[in-house]
Nucleic acid binder design. Structure first.
Lengths: 327, 327
DNA sequence: GTGAAAGCGCTAACAT
DNA sequence: ATGTTAGCGCTTTCAC
């Protein structure tokens, strides 16, 4: 920056000012500085800038995994929105490990992140302590309905389970099954399951749950369907913890010539790309990962710009039942 | 850090040393420092550290989008591997816009990134200039077979096209079609297409190409299939630029009762989760996004640790044909 | 094995 | 509108 300053025959602080608020510098001087920057190929250091300003333009985003289409959507929307404010996304994956999450939070704090985005409401005590001590704005995403650290954007998963159960019952189903994967790790899937079972009980309909220890992929859908039919031969309505599982099950139904939805109704979660074009198109419940990303960006923007945020605020992005032909 | 130092009755530089190389400090002093850190809830500043050491523990990863399962896989594997070396991933999305990429590279340089990961071999002149001037290790991923800036990890997409064409011809197909999406932006899909057409010509088999302007999603698969059959009623072998498209087309074939693979062979690219369980299971060509991520992590680790890297190195992760039942 | 001192490249009062 | 000055919180010689 000094090199630029001497080349433009101004002081370093004028260069700094020009970089941060060009309109505060006279346009003639501005032009000379811009030229000097260009000639020298000068790239300002955000590291030094962050240290001096005691605020970094980094937002730490911590999700289970971007391989999961839900989180990929949120991260993508969030990154795009934040980039417009010249905020950078530092990405971390927990792989559903809360201790890993704590380590990532520690790193975020080390970067003096302008804000931290966490997935879900369940965290270690250490994570909470670190965050509470730091005064960094925190947004918890993809879950609502529990005690939150600071701000939250998401929806209530128990309510999703309720919608699923109600819908299947309305479609005349009387032997329900909720099928999930890795629900010990995925607290949100577990919440959908509980909501489902509670609602079925409330409606006086028989319901059970079943799960696979592996990740919720299309490949295990057929396995789970087979297992389900073995354990509950008379099941007539199944809700899956996501569309991948449902699609796999649907494939297996085709192979077994099980009539969907006559003999068996299938309900997914996520409204992923393939759901509208499968045979038959999959009825599913749609959350909006993109909307979550946008709302989070809005909250962070406010917190960073005006240095004022509303602790305790929660934004409900809701869910929508998308009725198609598998129910 | 001074607070920690006074509480532990040592000098700040001893605390610093302890943090970076605990074994260089006597264990008794180490214990006292560790206690002080804990008591005070001290979290070291990577910003100040980066400035003082003139090297930040950040790796900038710039991909078109993590919504794309291919890049999600690579980013995920890369982040996991780098985290072990306490390197953090700064994520950027170009959405296939090369100017956006240049802006992200500028940001990466501003962070004094320890390394920069770029997707593909096509970049603006400005991007090349910035990178060449900076001496930052650069890894270009997901593409091989052109001039590279520094290191590269990926595979040759023209060869993928060749494999596709050869395979279809071997399966007795004589009217070939390559179906892609957004190939003006997606240079790699375009390369697969060229390789496909060139090989078909070489083998003396009729072949054409067709494309959709939108993104390569399952939903447009049916559209493209319809369009293809209209323009080329006698086509008997189709290669798609990815499995999403192929799956959509497969769904449409089911609806139209087109016998796959008898009447029409379908070949995908990507080996995504659903490909092994669709009806029938999809023949596809498998790249390894995960392997790419791991190899990139290895190169970056070397470059960061030993400060020595091999400019010009290229690592071929190859591709594999996964024969299933749609061809 | 530990400490003193200099500085990394900026920002932000404040003065002019 | 521009310049002067004093740090931001660390790392890294170098000396002890």
């Amino acid at each position: 920056m000094s090199d630029v300053a001497s080349r433009a025959s101004v002081s370093p602080s004028t260069v700094s000012l020009f970089l941060r608020r060009p309109e505060a510098v006279s346009s003639s001087v501005g032009r000379v500085i811009a030229r000097a920057i260009d000639d020298l190929g000068y790239v300002p250091s955000l590291v030094a800038g962050g240290l001096a300003a005691a605020s970094s333009r980094v937002v730490s985003v911590i999700v289970p995994s971007v391989r999961n289409a839900f989180f990929a959507e949120t991260v993508s929307a969030l990154q795009a929105d934040l980039a417009r404010e010249r905020l950078n996304v530092l990405l971390g994956h927990t792989e559903y490990d809360l201790d890993e999450e704590e380590a990532l939070v520690r790193t975020a704090l080390s970067w003096r992140a302008a804000a931290i985005v966490l997935t879900g409401l369940t965290h270690t005590a250490g994570t909470r302590r670190l965050l509470q001590a730091s005064a960094t704005p925190v947004v918890e995403i993809w879950e609502l309905g529990g005690p939150q650290i600071d701000m939250a954007v998401g929806f209530d998963h128990a309510l999703v389970g309720e919608t699923a159960a109600r819908h299947l019952v309305e479609r005349g189903r009387r032997k329900l099954l909720f099928v999930g994967a890795r629900m010990a790790d995925d607290r949100r899937a577990a919440a959908r399951c509980s909501g489902f079972l509670a609602t079925a009980a409330h409606l006086g309909v028989e319901a059970a749950a079943m799960e696979h220890p592996g990740p919720a992929t299309v490949e295990i859908g057929p396995l789970l369907l087979a297992q389900a039919l073995r354990a509950h031969p008379d099941v007539d309505g199944m809700a899956f913890s996501n569309d991948h599982l449902a699609l796999g099950a649907l494939f297996e139904c085709q192979r077994r010539k099980i009539d969907v939805p006559q003999r068996l109704a299938l309900l997914g979660f996520g409204d992923l790309g393939f759901s509208s074009v499968s045979n038959p198109p999959l009825t599913t419940i749609k959350p909006s990962g993109e909307l979550i990303g946008q709302e989070v960006a809005r909250l962070i923007r406010r917190a960073v710009e005006s240095d004022e945020h509303t602790p305790g605020i929660s934004i409900d992005t809701h869910h929508v039942l998308v009725q198609r032909l598998t129910t």
